[in-house]
Amino acid sequence: MLIELAGVNKIYNQGRANQVQALTDINLTVAAGSMVCLQGPSGSGKSTLLGIIGCVFPPTSGRAAIGGKQLARLPDRFLTIHRRQMIGFIFQRFNLLSQLSVLENVTLPLLPLGVGPRQRRQRAGILLERLAISHRENFPAGSISGGELQRAAIARALINDPPLILADEPTAHLDTPLSREFMAIMADLKAAGKTIVITSHDPLVAQHPAVDRVVGVSDGRIDVP
């Protein structure tokens, strides 16, 4: 299993007056090469769950292993390194830096790895070509269309060739054709062997044939079918 969560709890502001129990007793396993959709309303804990799977923060308690590594035992620095090697993120609003060009945005994860400019350009060029936005590589991210932004964000998530792709509400701000296009790209990535976890309350995502499993999340718990 690429993702193994057992009895995972996440409490924000533990011990303070504003303490929040975001996740309670989460048990979830995701096999390598599969696509899982985490479905639930806003505030249900999907993004927190994605944050734990994405090694952004460790669980408060429970066992969380991503790619065979126990997150609770990893200091913050190693969580970052593990995240860099294992995970590609696609965000709700794509989170590209608007003043940087598409090429610069896509290659951002490579800078702290010490990858030289020529190799960065080469790797990004292949991805941008594959996602059909190579003609926009020198455009500032703030000046391209929503569909192009989406593809640039996917290219950035793939630049390190991570085995796990996490997408947080990726279709929330896209129209139906762009949402379909996004899922088509995800399906291709799954076919190429990537493991994909998508949080969404969009039926178009949950009902996509490439999605192997839909996991309902509400009030910080996984719904039992």
Partner: peptide
């Protein structure tokens, strides 16, 4: 603040 958060989630360390 947004730029820093994005860079960190993309694998940049605090030291970087």
């Amino acid at each position: 603040r947004r730029e820093i958060a994005i860079l960190k989630i993309l694998g940049w360390e605090t030291a970087d």
